[in-house]
């Protein structure tokens, strides 16, 4: 099982994502100019400020050669996880519904948040301990998930809302407390909190983020089998 972690100029959390992925499988960095996904079974689009995020978060990265391959990979059912800036990139690429807006407090905010797993049977959550909240850090200034009423109704109905901020934890003002959404076919998920920063007790404050990576491994192995 192999993860590919994209690297753009301006990526910040790609090495953290790489190391987290290596705790459950193999993992390689994929340079933004490369179209070759190196045979990865799952792709992680990491956090950071791709291309400086100067136009709009994620707006330029979605046009990179690597992302063109990722879009194709996702359309063919490949597993893709977008974290923070990666979530923004996936929304810009229309692989995920909705958009990310500036936090309601208009400030970059860094906080350990508790998340409710509302869809426990997805490719990204099947290894999460049943009935338990996840404690994972979030840190961003553009993390307020937004979707129009129609889209919102559809993704709620179709079970595309995967994680929600627990009560009192939704500091960015996301609609419906939504922290993570998937696409219709369930092979692409984006979330604002950083599971790759909660994979070891010593530096993460918890190991809850590891269960997201373990879930992806299980899903990839199911596909392979």
């Amino acid at each position: 099982m192999k993860f590919g972690v994209l690297q753009f100029p301006g990526s910040c959390d790609e090495v953290d994502a790489l190391e987290a992925a290596r705790m459950v499988g193999e993992a390689e960095l994929i340079w933004h100019r490369d179209r070759d996904l190196q045979g990865a079974d799952a792709i992680v689009v990491p956090g950071g400020f791709s291309y400086g995020d100067y136009l709009r978060a994620g707006a330029i990265a979605r046009f990179s050669p690597a992302m063109e391959s990722v879009i194709e990979f996702a359309r063919e059912g490949g597993l893709v996880l977008g974290i923070c800036n990666g979530f923004q990139v996936l929304c810009e690429a229309h692989l995920l519904p909705g958009a990310l807006l500036p936090n309601v407090n208009l400030r970059f905010t860094s906080r350990q948040v508790r998340l409710d797993v509302v869809a426990p049977d997805t490719a990204f959550t099947s290894a999460c301990p049943p009935g338990r909240q996840l404690s994972i850090p979030a840190k961003h200034s553009w993390g307020r998930f937004h979707a129009d009423a129609e889209t919102l109704e559809r993704i709620e109905r179709d079970g595309q809302v995967v994680l929600r901020y627990a009560q009192g934890e939704n500091f960015n003002g996301s609609v419906g407390d939504i922290a993570a959404v998937s696409n219709e076919t369930g092979n692409v998920m984006g979330l604002m909190p950083h599971p790759e920063h909660a994979v070891q007790e010593l530096t993460g404050g918890s190991t809850d983020g590891l269960s997201i990576f373990q879930s992806i491994r299980l899903a990839a192995e199911r596909v392979a089998a």
Partner: peptide, 25 residues
């Protein structure tokens, strides 16, 4: 300090207000 990313790089063993000094693995 909530306006700062204190954890990127995965070395931060003690975050602000957890100890008198920051600790990096």
């Amino acid at each position: 300090f909530e306006q700062y990313d204190s954890i990127v790089g995965s070395r931060t063993i003690r975050r602000p207000e957890q100890a008198d000094a920051a600790v990096l693995a």
